[in-house]
Design a protein around this nucleic acid. Structure first.
Lengths: 172, 172
DNA sequence: ACCTGAACACCGTTCAAGT
DNA sequence: ACCTGAACACCGTTCAAGT
């Protein structure tokens, strides 16, 4: 429970990531986070301004990791879409923290958000409007799936195929 | 602050709706809710099992209101989509409570969810898969907009038009 | 610089007690 | 049946105090 290695912003980000990944962001309290690091909650404030900054650390990490993977995925729309789906479903507790909470824009690495956005635009064929429409569809489907909102008998694969087809068709 | 009319489940739902609408669901505490009704927090538990049940009351109300409006909107895809957009943006604090939180399925009115779903399927032309793809797109775009995730210069109208065109095209 | 215990104003919820 | 005050185990955060 208390490895007590070196407590710094990186260690805090790592511990917070593990807690969220395992139990969801609701279970990320300053006390449990401190406990995982082997210190008491008030000590966290020597490294970090407040809980929002911890969230911002997670958002930065997640945007970086997602951005790298998205860039490394194949060039076709299908491959980009499938990567988006896989990353989101592989990180079901992290996903909402990056893509559904208010982005702490003044706290995350400058340029990181627009860099990821540019990749989405490029994947959508260069049109900003098509990029937003595509992103909305991917984000919406992921969210409905994570929140268990699709009917129990929903064929997820078929719906994703439909989404891919829709996007491909809208590009020419 | 304390009208003290009749405290029952309906009055609780009404007061909770007002609080969420005005300040967001994070500000809906059992204490503020009780205060608005002119009683103390523990008294709420004579009418309601817990906070989750209050959320369920809101989800029921919202599903009913949304469902009625969606049904009453015109028959074309365009009209359905525009209603969805308007309802969501007119109820920015209620929307996430119904469409982004876990649905308390055992607490909301039975059949209500599937009734609304059926309307979406019908609006999408009868195909379940197309309905899910359409819903994902509407939900995703609303969420990105509510969370301020679209670039500052984003032309929202144009993106919605793109979404409408995409859906129309995918139906034949 | 980094950590601590104690404290503050908040939570949801329980419970004994009143009417 | 409906309401209350007091209490419990939680929050985020501050602060004086230690090293």
């Amino acid at each position: 429970m208390s490895p007590r290695k070196k407590v710094n912003r990186q260690a805090i980000a790592e511990a917070a990531w593990q807690i969220v990944e395992a139990d969801g962001s609701a279970d990320l309290s300053m006390r449990t986070l401190a406990g995982k690091l082997g210190i008491k909650a008030p000590s966290l404030y020597d490294h970090v301004k407040n809980r929002d900054e911890v969230i911002a650390l997670l958002q930065t990490r997640a945007l970086e990791q997602f951005g790298e993977g998205f860039a490394a995925a194949g060039d076709s729309v299908r491959e980009k879409v499938l990567f988006y789906r896989e990353w989101a479903l592989a990180n079901p507790n992290i996903y909402p923290v990056v893509f559904q909470q208010f982005l702490q824009r003044e706290l995350i690495t400058p340029g990181l958000e627009s860099q990821v956005l540019a990749q989405v635009v490029s994947a959508a064929g260069g049109s900003h409007i098509q990029a937003r429409a595509m992103w909305a569809q991917l984000h919406g489907l992921v969210d409905l799936q994570l929140q268990n909102r699709l009917p129990a008998d929903a064929d997820a694969d078929a719906t994703w195929e439909q989404v891919i087809r829709t996007i491909e068709n809208s590009q020419h």
